[in-house]
Amino acid sequence: MKTKKIFLNVTLLGFIYFLTVGFIKSPQTDYTPIEQGKWVAPASADKITNPLKGDIASIVSGQKTYKMLCLVCHGPKGKGDGMAGAGLTPKPADLTSSTFQSQSDGAIFWKIEQGRSPMPSYKTSIPEKKRWEIINYLRTLK
């Protein structure tokens, strides 16, 4: 009986708090989002060579990994139109664009490894071989 009374009191206090906070008007701020500049890998990244270049099996494996990890933001065809990407700033890259495709494999590898908000770093969560496989698949999106 005592536990029930305590629970009701806590619930009532929580409800009152919610109502109070919900009706307090937050101060207006003049917020302007900060644009991120062009994402350029360092020149040293261009020297990183793809050990799996031309490996057909790696493309198939890379496509599977892409579907699991990248599709949600970059979209099914790599256009940057994935469901999760809609709310991101900056928007996910169009992986089919000439700007993206003109990068070296090493530059793309570096970007996947390093990440840049809102894209996380995949250095520790995707093994190196899988990252190269993803890049080989991305090359088929031209």
Rank of each mutant, 00 (worst) to 15 (best):
S102L: 06
K129A: 15
S44Q: 14
W39R: 07
C70F: 06
I24H: 07
K77V: 13
S26I: 15
T99C: 01
R131A: 01
K47L: 14
Q36K: 11
K67M: 07
I112S: 00
T99K: 09
P27L: 14
V10K: 04
T89L: 05
A93G: 08
K2P: 08
Y31N: 06
G115F: 03
T65V: 15
K79D: 13
F23T: 15
T32H: 07
E35L: 10
P42Y: 04
R131N: 01
K25S: 09
F109C: 07
I112V: 15
K111D: 07
K47N: 13
T49K: 15
P127Q: 06
I16Q: 01
R116D: 05
S121F: 00
L12F: 12
T32I: 10
G62H: 03
A45Q: 03
K111A: 09
Y66A: 04
W39C: 05
L52Q: 08
I134L: 11
E133I: 09
A93F: 10
N136T: 03
A43L: 04
T124D: 09
L12E: 00
F18P: 01
W110G: 02
G22K: 03
F15S: 12
C73A: 10
P33K: 13
W39A: 11
M119D: 02
K64P: 05
Y31W: 10
K111C: 02
I24A: 08
P33V: 11
T3N: 15
L141P: 10
K67I: 09
K38V: 07
S102G: 14
S58M: 10
A84K: 13
A57Y: 11
G75A: 08
K91C: 08
I59A: 03
L88K: 06
F100H: 05
S102W: 04
T124P: 03
P76G: 12
F18A: 12
M83Y: 11
S97R: 06
G22R: 02
T96H: 12
E133R: 13
A107F: 03
K130N: 02
A45H: 00
L69R: 11
K123C: 01
I59C: 07
W39Q: 09
S44T: 13
T140P: 12
M1L: 00
E35P: 04
G115P: 05
Y122F: 13
L13S: 04
K91T: 12
A84H: 13
T140Q: 14
G22Q: 03
K38T: 05
S97A: 02
K77C: 06
L52V: 02
Q36N: 08
G115I: 09
S58P: 06
I126K: 01
R131E: 00
S26E: 14
I112E: 02
F7D: 03
K4C: 01
W39E: 07
V72W: 03
G22S: 08
K2Q: 09
Y66L: 05
T124N: 11
G75I: 02
E133F: 05
A86H: 12
I48P: 01
S26F: 15
I135G: 02
K77N: 14
T99R: 07
Q28Y: 03
F7C: 07
Q36A: 06
T49C: 02
P90W: 14
L141C: 08
K67L: 08
Q101K: 11
V21G: 06
Y17K: 04
